[in-house]
Simulated assay, not measured.
Amino acid sequence: MTIIGPYINGTAIVLGALIGAGLGKRVPEPLRHNLTLIFGLCSMGMGVVMTAKVASMPAMVLSVLIGSILGELILLEQGINKLASSTKGIVERLLPFKPNAHLSHEEFLAKFVAVMILFSFSGTGIFGAMNEGMSGDESILIVKSFLDFFTAMIFAATLGVSVAAIFVPQTLLQLILAYSAVMLIPLITPEMRADFAAVGGMLMIATGFRICGVTMFRVANILPALFLAMPISALWRMFF
């Protein structure tokens, strides 16, 4: 199977960052704000479509509940934040800070790490990569590429072309997930795949709410639900 979604997504980040760095402060603040809300709306819309494909509602709900409890207990989101923060030294060596009238050195690094988490560890990206590996459908990552192109452009207007470097960890993570998921194809049924897609849809809805500032779902703590969705789906059909 040929995996193309991660490469498309990485290219979109690089192009968006280059254009955003070139535009700089010429990107109006109202446009930045409204585009962010539109990103959240698109994420929720995709989530609703994916959730509607559910084959077993109880399996979907159980996966989200148990996965979220597990994520909260192991403090997954906090761990991801710490892992990303520990890369500040590497970022500082690879991307020397250029003086900015609006950002201090520490603010630059903090924002860069936050953007790296946003791109690399989003529920949409992780679900999209796994979904392409199992189904060959790259549409989720292509839609994410549209969103990431404009997001990278907006952040690069402030942080500069350094935002383009984020394509490296994101592409590597998505490729690992996609090719790992390829190996699951012989083991899964259409119903398991549908329930997996529905759980991914729930993550995308939660992501949309967070982007829009409606409520700050700890989306990373829900990620274990993706890995539980198919086993729970199979067990539900076996016993019920």
Score class of each variant (00 low, 15 high):
residue 168 V to S: 11
residue 157 A to D: 07
residue 18 L to P: 09
residue 209 F to R: 01
residue 126 I to L: 11
residue 21 A to P: 06
residue 9 N to E: 10
residue 20 G to W: 00
residue 108 F to T: 08
residue 142 I to P: 06
residue 167 F to E: 01
residue 220 A to R: 04
residue 164 A to Q: 05
residue 52 A to M: 09
residue 131 N to I: 02
residue 222 I to E: 02
residue 72 E to H: 14
residue 3 I to H: 14
residue 116 M to G: 09
residue 215 T to C: 08
residue 57 M to Y: 10
residue 113 V to G: 15
residue 70 L to Y: 08
residue 152 A to N: 11
residue 48 V to A: 07
residue 24 G to L: 03
residue 221 N to E: 14
residue 61 V to L: 12
residue 106 E to G: 15
residue 168 V to G: 09
residue 41 L to A: 08
residue 223 L to F: 02
residue 206 A to K: 01
residue 113 V to R: 13
residue 58 P to E: 04
residue 159 L to D: 01
residue 163 V to H: 01
residue 189 T to M: 04
residue 27 V to K: 08
residue 106 E to F: 14
residue 182 V to Q: 15
residue 166 I to L: 14
residue 37 L to P: 03
residue 193 R to S: 09
residue 106 E to W: 11
residue 239 F to Y: 12
residue 232 I to V: 00
residue 171 T to L: 11
residue 194 A to M: 05
residue 93 R to G: 12
residue 13 I to T: 05
residue 222 I to V: 03
residue 149 F to E: 00
residue 151 T to L: 07
residue 13 I to E: 13
residue 149 F to T: 02
residue 227 F to L: 10
residue 130 M to A: 04
residue 65 L to A: 11
residue 202 M to Q: 05
residue 85 S to G: 13
residue 24 G to D: 02
residue 58 P to V: 00
residue 174 Q to S: 04
residue 198 A to D: 04
residue 6 P to T: 04
residue 161 V to E: 01
residue 140 I to P: 09
residue 116 M to K: 15
residue 103 L to Q: 14
residue 198 A to S: 10
residue 31 L to S: 05
residue 76 L to P: 08
residue 102 H to Q: 15
residue 89 G to V: 13
residue 47 G to T: 04
residue 64 V to M: 12
residue 47 G to L: 01
residue 170 Q to P: 06
residue 129 A to E: 03
residue 55 A to L: 08
residue 105 H to V: 05
residue 50 M to K: 07
residue 34 N to F: 12
residue 142 I to Q: 01
residue 10 G to F: 01
residue 11 T to N: 10
residue 235 L to I: 14
residue 145 S to L: 04
residue 16 G to S: 08
residue 77 E to P: 06
residue 237 R to P: 01
residue 129 A to M: 02
residue 205 I to Y: 00
residue 42 C to D: 07
residue 145 S to N: 10
residue 147 L to M: 15
residue 84 A to V: 15
residue 188 I to W: 00
residue 169 P to R: 02
residue 160 G to R: 02
residue 114 A to T: 12
residue 148 D to N: 13
residue 137 D to Y: 03
residue 46 M to K: 04
residue 212 C to N: 10
residue 194 A to N: 11
residue 206 A to N: 02
residue 81 N to L: 14
residue 232 I to M: 07
residue 226 L to P: 08
residue 114 A to N: 14
residue 202 M to T: 06
residue 189 T to F: 05
residue 32 R to Y: 11
residue 203 L to R: 00
residue 26 R to K: 06
residue 1 M to E: 13
residue 130 M to R: 00
residue 75 L to V: 11
residue 140 I to Y: 08
residue 7 Y to N: 10
residue 74 I to A: 09
residue 108 F to C: 14
residue 202 M to N: 07
residue 37 L to S: 05
residue 70 L to Q: 06
